[in-house]
Structures are given as structure tokens and as C-alpha cells.
Nucleic acid binder design. Structure first.
Lengths: 226, 226
DNA sequence: ATATTTTTAGACATGCTTGTCCAAATCGTC
DNA sequence: GACGATTTGGACAAGCATGTCTAAAAATAT
């Protein structure tokens, strides 16, 4: 089937291109309309292929949906781990570094197309596909939260932070940094670059007042002046 | 049409009962299946009425949906303002009082049936009904956030908190207090009483380290001991 | 008890969507 | 240029959901 001696990639080029195009369109339509509301004809049209081609590739509306979620989960996870690599291990200026990290996480993982799509699909159809989303839970939050917590633990060990429970600190960090974006997220909107930055700045400031080490101590008394 | 001299409530008793029953079932089904996936026959069955009765009352699937969201918005709003009344104005023990308030807000407004339903419907169908959800936004977040912020401002004025911007503090408070429940919310689950309490306790502790006034200052150095 | 309103069950027309089938056209490769 | 695989467009059957209509039954008020 696959060209046995092809130089670069096994299946013909146009084939994979169409596959990707279909996944893209399916993602977009499932997201907008939900699973039940999604129309295969519309997906095909949006992908620029015929309906039959969609069926050739994925066989079934449900299989297509599962493929989309799987794909999205993988891509999002990869993005998060990439971003996690930019976590400040030896911060020069911890506040600025954490803000940078938060903005990065937001821009590249939470607010981008994939992040929004995955979040919406999980919220909308999560209860209907328990095993599929169990996988997401293990592969996603189940791996990213501990990884993030470990980073905070290291920062604490190096004396840059003061915290008892790195897991809680990690959750508090993300919660604070996204605090001002929740309403926008709710309605599926994309916050502006500026909103992201503001939310991150305010969130990190509060985080450091709660969890800052010796160096950050100064911030507190300053902010505490009513 | 309505009994002109009825002693208690104007429309016949059974009529309103059926209406409520339909709204209830519709809410439940719309929530589970989404607007497109919701089936009028199923709603009727779940409400224990005939399909025709659903049409008699609401005329239209879309009108029914709008009625459900409107109803939900009102009820949730009412609940939030009621809960807001329990905000500690003159706290004896600020930490315990804030925890109590947070738990109350969670149990009665965010985790209950209506809260979960409204959240899900907004996330799933918000983009499709812009004007409907614009109303929600104004009536809901547009009124509740300032109200909550005002409470925090008062607490700060009385010297119990130290904060620059009460709006941000309010958002940070809610974010922290719900930090550990996000994953559960995502999948439409209901956190246990204990999870709610834990999340509130941890959240309030962090909040007070970030925003605590003079009295709460002691907490910080205590937690800062690695 | 009677009259009025509401509810019910079911049939019904209509339109939409899924998924299949097929013959012609297109594409990429040898 | 010829061959095989893929894609295309459209026809097609089947199922399902919405919304209407009707006559009978039930509930309510007078």
C-alpha cells in the first residue's frame, strides 16, 4: 500500500495533506457546533474535500471525533511540556521570570487554537466519552501538574520561594495568573496580548506575596501599605 | 384566562407545575446533550408530559432553550446575591470567616445543579446566542463582581486586609478558593464536600498571605518556614 | 353536574443527516 | 504515456427529529 521505497514519507503527499485538512476542519466544526450539531458535509466543505473522502479516511463520525480529540490532546500536551522547559530554574529576577513564563503558558497552551478547542470539547462532550477523557486526564493534567509542581519545589529548595506543598502552590500559581481571563474563556473568546500580560503581572505579584522567599519579602510590606 | 378572583395563585395549579417540570427536564437534557443533541421527545418523557404539552407551553425548541437559560441566569444570580449577604463584614476570625464564605459560595452557587448547568450551557452555546449571553454577562458577572469587590474594599478599609485594587483581589480570591476544583469542573463533576473545604482552606490561607492585614501577618512567617 | 380548558396519544408531512454505492475524473508514479 | 490509487460528485436508502393536527380523555372551575 505505502510506497515501499519512497525517499521521505511513506504515504503519498497529497493524502496526508487532505488528512490534516480534514482534522483541522473537523476540529473547528466540532468545536463550534458540538458533536451532535456538527455536520459532515460542512466539515468536508470546510476542509475542501468531498464528503466521501472524509469517510474514506475516518470511516465514521464518531471515529473522526475521537481522532480529533486524540490529536488535540497530544499536541496540547507537547506544547505544555515545551513551555514547561522555559520555567525559570535559576531566576535572575524571579518576578519578571515568572511573568514571562505565565505569559508563555497562556499564549502557547491555553489561548491558542488547540488549547481552546480541547477545553471546549472536554467540557461539552466529556461526560459522553468517559474512557476517552480518562486518557486525556491521565496524559494531560495527570502529567503536567506534577511536572509543574516539581519546578516550584526546586525553586523553593533553592530558596526563591517559601512553600509547604508544591502541588498546591502550582495550582494557586495557575489560578492567579489566569484569574482575570476566566470570563473571556467562558465565552470562548481569546484575550488580547495585553489582558494576558496584565493578568499574569497581577497574578504573579499576588503569588509572590503569598509564596515569595526572602528576596521577595520586600514586596509585601510595600503592597501592604494601604 | 387566568382565574380573576382566585384566592392564592392566578393560573391553575397543575399548569404551572407542568411548566416547571418541563423547564427542569429541558435544563437537564440541554445540559447533557447540548442544544443540537437535545431531543424534545426525551425532554417530554423526562418531564412526564406529552410532547404536545411542551409545544403548547414554549412553542419552539429555541424558545424553550432561551427560557431555560433566562431562568437559570435569574436563579443563579439570586443565589449569588443571597450568598454575598453572608460575606463577613466585621470578622471575628477572618480566616475562618472567609473559609466559611468560600464554602458557602461554592456549595450554593458554583457546584449546585443550577450553577453547573448555567456554566455548561454558556460554554457550549454561548457563541451561538450572542445577545442572550450578553444579557447574562451584564446581569451576572457584571453585577456580582463589583458587589464582591465592594465587600473586599470594606474589609480593607476596616484594616482587615491590605490591598490596592479590590477588583483584582476579588478575582484572586475566587481563583484561589476554586483552584483545586478546576479539573473536576472541567468534566462536569461535582466535588465532594471535603474537596470544597480543602480547596477553600488552602485558597484562603494563600489569599491572606498575599492580602492579609496586620492581624494576619503572623501567618506568613509561619508558612514561610521551609 | 356541567362547561371550559388543558392534556394526551398518535398519526402525519417534511426536511435533514448519516452512511453507502458507483462511475467518472484526477493525481502521482513508473 | 500508462497504470494504480485516490478523489469526486451525485444519487440513494434509511432513520430520526421537528413541528402540526386531530379527536378523545382528564382535570379544573362554575
Amino acid at each position: 500500500m505505502n510506497a515501499p521505497h519512497a525517499p521521505d514519507s511513506f504515504p503519498p503527499r497529497g493524502h496526508e495533506a487532505k488528512r490534516a485538512s480534514i482534522m483541522d476542519a473537523a476540529c473547528s466544526v466540532f468545536c463550534r457546533e458540538g458533536f451532535a450539531g456538527a455536520n459532515i458535509d460542512l466539515i468536508a466543505a470546510e476542509a475542501g474535500v468531498s464528503r466521501q473522502t472524509v469517510y474514506n479516511h475516518h470511516g465514521d463520525k464518531e471515529k473522526l471525533f475521537v481522532a480529533v480529540v486524540r490529536d488535540l490532546t497530544e499536541r496540547c500536551n507537547a506544547g505544555i511540556f515545551t513551555t514547561l522547559a522555559s520555567f525559570p530554574d535559576r531566576p535572575a529576577a524571579i518576578e519578571a521570570d515568572l511573568v514571562r513564563f505565565a505569559v508563555c503558558m497562556n499564549r502557547n497552551c491555553l489561548c491558542n487554537r488547540d488549547g481552546k478547542a480541547l477545553r471546549k470539547l472536554i467540557q461539552a462532550e466529556g461526560e459522553r466519552y468517559p474512557e476517552l477523557f480518562a486518557v486525556w486526564r491521565e496524559q494531560g493534567p495527570g502529567r503536567t501538574w506534577p511536572a509543574l509542581a516539581a519546578r516550584f519545589a526546586r525553586l523553593a529548595l533553592a530558596g526563591h520561594l517559601a512553600l509547604d506543598d508544591p502541588d498546591i502552590a502550582a495550582r494557586h500559581f495557575m489560578a492567579l495568573v489566569n484569574a482575570e481571563l476566566q470570563t473571556t474563556f467562558m465565552l470562548g473568546g481569546t484575550p488580547t496580548e495585553d489582558e494576558v500580560l496584565q493578568s499574569a503581572r497581577n497574578g504573579v505579584r499576588a503569588f509572590l506575596r503569598a509564596y515569595g522567599g526572602r528576596e521577595a519579602g520586600a514586596h509585601r510590606s510595600e503592597a501592604a501599605a494601604s
